[in-house]
């Protein structure tokens, strides 16, 4: 083979073209391969199969009286479950959408009006707002108040004042029985 290559004596122009072609082809294939090889490393940092499998939490809500809140853990985050009193529901219902930073009706945020279920993580920078315990400050709108940077949420968990950009998110949930809710 080596002898043949020497004997053939390709003109220098052809040789240069062949060499360029090989250089570009090799570089391209090598670059694609390197890119593909990086994916397993990056993907290994995504949630693992066991983490994804733990994505539902069942909660017994039979013992939560009106006016009471409980905090449960879902995907490592606090979830607020509030059994709202009629006046809180009324308060949340009468706000004009135009006054809201992120306009959402209360009905869109609670499948059953008496049960408000929220991810208890401030949408500003991730602190847990106060307001779950009776003695906690609840902010100017009677819902939750984030002490880190002063965001105020109303009785529907919507942002009303302070730096947070969005309402407290509602996690996916369903009532599996009248007294049990499955979050996730």
């Amino acid at each position: 083979m080596a002898d043949q290559a020497h004997n053939a004596q390709p003109s220098s122009v052809d040789g240069q073209t062949r060499r360029d072609f090989l250089l570009y082809a090799t570089s391209a294939v090598g670059a694609v391969g390197t890119g593909l090889a990086l994916w397993p490393f990056v993907h290994s940092m995504n949630p693992a199969a066991d983490t994804l499998a733990l994505s539902t939490t069942d909660v017994d809500i039979s013992a939560i009286k009106p006016g009471q809140s409980v905090t449960v853990v879902w995907r490592g985050k606090p979830v607020f479950i509030r059994h709202r009193e009629p006046e809180e529901i009324a308060e949340a219902g009468k706000v004009a959408l135009a006054d809201l930073r992120e306009p959402q009706t209360d009905a869109d945020r609670a499948k059953k009006p008496e049960w408000l279920i929220l991810i208890g993580v401030c949408t500003h920078l991730g602190c847990v707002p106060l307001g779950q315990k009776p003695a906690d400050p609840k902010g100017e709108f009677g819902g939750w108040f984030c002490p880190c940077h002063g965001s105020h949420y109303d009785t529907s968990g919507r942002i009303r004042k302070g730096p947070a950009p969005a309402n407290l998110p509602v996690p996916p949930y369903q009532f599996t029985t009248d007294t049990t809710v499955r979050i996730g």
Partner: peptide, 22 residues
């Protein structure tokens, strides 16, 4: 399969680059 193709290309390129040195 991928490494086979890549290595074959690199071999061809190596031959091309070295042909005047040999």
């Amino acid at each position: 399969v991928f490494l086979g193709v890549l290595t074959a290309l690199m071999y061809a390129l190596k031959r091309q680059i070295w042909k005047d040195v040999h």
